[in-house]
Simulated scan of single mutants.
Amino acid sequence: MKKILLLLADGFEAVEASVFTDVLGWNKWEGDGSTEVVTVGLRDKLTCTWNFNVVPEKTIHDIQLDEFDALAIPGGFEEAGFYDDAFSESFSNIIRHFDARQKPIASICVASLALGKSGILTNRKATTYAHPTSIRKEQLKNFGVNVQNERIVQDGHIITSSNPGTAFDVAFLLLEMLTTKENTHQVKDLMGFA
């Protein structure tokens, strides 16, 4: 069984988290059965961007990082306090742990800024929220990142994306990294994406 740590910051976007629970959950029951998602936060209760309250299964103090095979991080909104958690040293330490072991790291939208803040994207290719009115790409560049104008960027074991609309694609790409292209196609087909 491959365990995926779904790392949630206060102020995360629920839709960006749900794609990981759904795609990897469908794989657990309808695909090859090899994936299990564990939701983890810095505290016992989190509030999503749009005031939806979530109780993660575990806090970071309840887990052993070596038990996990991949890391997934949804983005969120500054106005909802996302960066308070996402830019914390606790978040950065978890990100660095997965990077040091070359385990898959999948981020959606502005979650790539947490990767940048941790230092793992220095001199690597990545993207972030890319709307023309946004300053997020410039922020990512300031972390020493080679910012790409692509919807999704994969640099080795790291996946970054440009907006919430990429969420399912990121989750399927992570599934493919953890299983096979054939298995991912089967799950996509069962979910109505193929």
Rank of each mutant, 00 (worst) to 15 (best):
K3F: 00
K3Q: 12
K3H: 07
I4P: 00
L5C: 15
L5Y: 01
L7I: 02
A9Y: 02
G11E: 06
F12T: 08
F12P: 06
E13M: 09
E13H: 03
V15T: 12
A17Q: 05
V19F: 00
D22H: 04
V23N: 03
G25E: 06
N27D: 14
W29R: 11
E36Q: 12
E36P: 02
V37L: 14
V40W: 01
R43Y: 05
D44Q: 14
D44P: 08
K45P: 01
K45H: 07
L46D: 12
T47E: 13
T47Y: 00
T47A: 04
W50G: 11
N51P: 00
N53C: 13
N53E: 15
V54K: 08
V54E: 07
V55E: 15
P56W: 02
E57R: 14
K58G: 15
D69S: 14
A70I: 11
A70W: 03
A72M: 03
I73E: 06
G75A: 10
F77H: 08
E78N: 14
G81Q: 03
Y83M: 10
Y83P: 13
D85K: 11
D85M: 12
A86R: 06
A86E: 04
F87E: 10
F87V: 11
S88V: 06
S92T: 06
S92H: 09
I94Y: 04
I94S: 13
R96V: 15
D99I: 12
Q102H: 07
Q102K: 13
Q102V: 09
K103L: 15
K103H: 02
A106W: 03
S107Q: 09
S107F: 12
I108L: 12
C109K: 10
V110F: 03
A111H: 13
S112K: 04
L113G: 06
L115H: 11
G116Y: 02
G116A: 09
G116N: 07
K117C: 11
K117W: 01
G119I: 03
I120V: 15
T122P: 00
K125P: 02
K125V: 03
A126E: 13
T127V: 01
T127S: 07
Y129W: 07
A130G: 10
A130M: 08
T133A: 13
S134A: 13
S134L: 09
R136T: 14
R136C: 15
K137G: 00
K137M: 07
E138W: 00
Q139I: 10
Q139C: 05
L140E: 00
K141R: 15
K141V: 03
N142D: 15
G144R: 08
R151F: 08
V153K: 05
Q154W: 02
D155N: 11
G156A: 13
S162T: 11
S162I: 06
A167Q: 01
F168N: 04
F168E: 01
F168T: 02
V170S: 10
V170Y: 03
A171C: 07
F172P: 01
L174S: 14
L175M: 10
L178V: 08
T179R: 04
T180F: 03
K181A: 15
E182K: 10
E182Y: 01
N183C: 12
N183A: 12
N183I: 05
H185R: 10
L190T: 06
L190D: 07
G192H: 01
G192L: 02
